[in-house]
Design a protein around this nucleic acid. Structure first.
Lengths: 208, 208
DNA sequence: CCCGATGGGGATGGTGCCATCCCCTCCCCA
DNA sequence: TGGGGAGGGGATGGCACCATCCCCATCGGG
């Protein structure tokens, strides 16, 4: 995977998807298009081996299955050799099957797509499977984002607040250490730092 | 603005909106909810002074104006003193007016919302205006994101590629310098570095 | 012919985050 | 009463990015 194209009209979502791709495929050039016209232009100018498409593009009726599949068809036809993923806001198993028949390798619902999921989807596609991720998922915990916390601090705070009641902090440190590839002591350090910052701000949440 | 809540079911979009808020309001605590239930819980547990809501939540029909306005109504009722912004994928001037009547201060279409826009919307609301941003916008340039480029390098490369034909590079450096608060020489430096990296990768686009 | 725009380098200090390893209290419970 | 969990510190080196300032070569046109 060296060159990817994201076709999505919502700017922030397109940027987010591009960031996901870049995080998962560090050496990947990523382009973005907000309309079908731009997408076709880019696909004829360049060669891409991954195309992520939201079929709800401007100029088409997002509620019309016909319009949506037409977008997918055009994109797939413009890059028949690329791996294709359809990312959609609305969730439709029938549409997923239709996309598959059009040559799409993955069908993902935005509702069920979290940070870090896309690489797994690409893995599945790479192994020849049809990757389908509908909105059934998943963690319905509220998000929290605190000011002045670094990413690591934020990470351990989030994990700590979401731990099941009765879990020792120790265990969370170890889980975090495993997930991040660092030592549990460092995880504990980040937790302490984060806690101190939040205390100073008077924003210490209940879960400590 | 010290405490903000983002009500949005699409994980990546919620994260992106939370990041936008954090970038614009550096000292702001930002929470996220993916369902109306979680949002109500958070709004009763805590006090928020800004709530950003996408009315297309799970359990409601995103195409039903009634369902959508009901979501907005519940959220506004749960935080009557907060500033409210509705962020929507579909664009409806009538819905915007209805939201305004419900006490919402801003109505923004995701299609027209780019990185850095939200603070401007909040400014308008802060000045007592009803901020409406429909999908009329805007720049329809393709996005590019290159691997191994640092943010600064990416920034100047993007600006350079989007310059009007005939614009001197010099002028772009100055524009970038003004926008980023750095010296034109530094902007030029980043451009040169980026160019060198892209050359080494053999990925130098046409605009140089 | 020199100047300005362009292209290609290197050296600098500063900052923030990462990841370690270390120290110290306090309290509760076994 | 001792030890482990919890809280509150500090010191370290490494690294990436930021922002500056400096050098050099080429090339075109006034």
């Amino acid at each position: 995977m060296h060159r990817a194209l994201i076709v999505e009209d919502q700017n922030l979502m397109r940027l987010a998807l591009m960031a996901e791709i870049r995080a998962g495929l560090p050496d990947c050039y990523v382009a973005g298009a907000q309309t079908l016209q731009i997408a076709r232009q880019l696909l004829t100018d360049d060669q891409f081996d991954l195309v992520v498409t939201d079929p709800g593009l401007p100029g088409f009726d997002p509620t019309s299955v016909e319009d949506r599949l037409h977008v997918v068809e055009v994109i797939v036809a413009a890059a028949p050799d690329a791996a294709h993923v359809v990312v959609t806001g609305s969730d439709d198993e029938m549409e997923a099957k239709a996309c598959r028949l059009l040559g799409v390798g993955g069908y993902v619902c935005k509702t069920g797509l979290s940070h870090g999921d896309l690489p797994r989807v690409l893995d599945e596609i790479g192994r020849g499977a049809f990757a389908s991720r509908l909105s059934t998922s998943g963690s319905l915990d509220p998000d929290m984002r605190f000011p002045t916390l670094t990413p690591r601090e934020d990470q351990i705070v989030t994990m700590m607040m979401r731990r099941k009641t009765g879990t020792r902090r120790r265990e969370v440190f170890e889980k975090m250490a495993t997930k991040a590839g660092i030592s549990p002591a460092s995880a504990e350090k980040y937790y302490k730092l984060a806690r101190a910052k939040l205390l100073k701000l008077g924003r210490l949440p209940k879960g400590l």
